[in-house]
Design a protein around this nucleic acid. Sequence first.
DNA 1: ACAAAGCACTTTATTTTTTAAAGTACTTTG
DNA 2: CAAAGTACTTTAAAAAATAAAGTGCTTTGT
Lengths: 98, 98
Amino acid sequence: MDNFDYNEIDDVIHSRIRTAIMAVLAVVEEADFSFLKNKINATDGNLSVHLKKLEDAKYISSKKMFIDRKPVSKYKITKSGLRAFENYVNKLGSLIKK
Amino acid sequence: MDNFDYNEIDDVIHSRIRTAIMAVLAVVEEADFSFLKNKINATDGNLSVHLKKLEDAKYISSKKMFIDRKPVSKYKITKSGLRAFENYVNKLGSLIKK
DNA sequence: ACAAAGCACTTTATTTTTTAAAGTACTTTG
DNA sequence: CAAAGTACTTTAAAAAATAAAGTGCTTTGT
C-alpha cells in the first residue's frame, strides 16, 4: 500500500456529472445533448456547463447541426479524452480496490 | 447499457481528496492526521476540512489524544462509512467499466 | 532561560465549481 | 396565432475546494 496521492486523480473527470458523461461517451460512438441529458439525468444548464468544460479540456468534441429543422449537438470523446478516461479508471481502480 | 444516472454517485465520497481518504481508511485499521496527510499528499487545511466533512456524514470517526505530549487525531472508517464506500465503488465500477 | 523553529491541527478568507434559474431562438401543436 | 415544447446557452446564486493565517503547545539551539 503505497500511492494514494489524491493529486493524481484527474479533476477534470472526477466530478459526478463529468464522470458520468465520460463513462457514456466512452461506450457510444456519438451522443447528442438530449440523449446525454436523459441518460445521466442532468438538468439542461448543468449538462451544458460540464460539456463545455470537457470540451475546453479537449476530452470531447462537438458538432452542432440541424436535424428535422431543430438544433442538435453531437458529442464524442476525443483520443486524448479516451486516454485520460482510461488513466482515470486505472488510477481510481488502483486506489479503490485493495 | 442502461443506468448512468450521476445522482446515484455518492457526492460525499466523490471528491478527489475524500475519495483518497476513504480509500486509505478502508484498508487500514486506524490512521492519524499526519499519516493521512503524507499518504494522500494533502495540505493541512484541506485535509482538516475534508475529514470534518466525512465525520459530519458519519463515514469516519475520530479520537483526539496526546501521544508523547503532542496532540494526535486518530481516524477510522465507520460501519456505515465502509458500507457507503463499498456502494460507491460498486456504483462507480458499474458506470466505468463497460 | 528564552527566542526561534516545529508539530498538529483548526479557522477564516479567497477562489473555483456546481447548481439552479432565466433567457434565446426557434418549431410544433391546438 | 398564441401557447407549449425543444435544444440549448447564459447569468446569477449557492456550495465546495483550496490557500493562507492562526492557535497552542513542544523541542531545539544559544
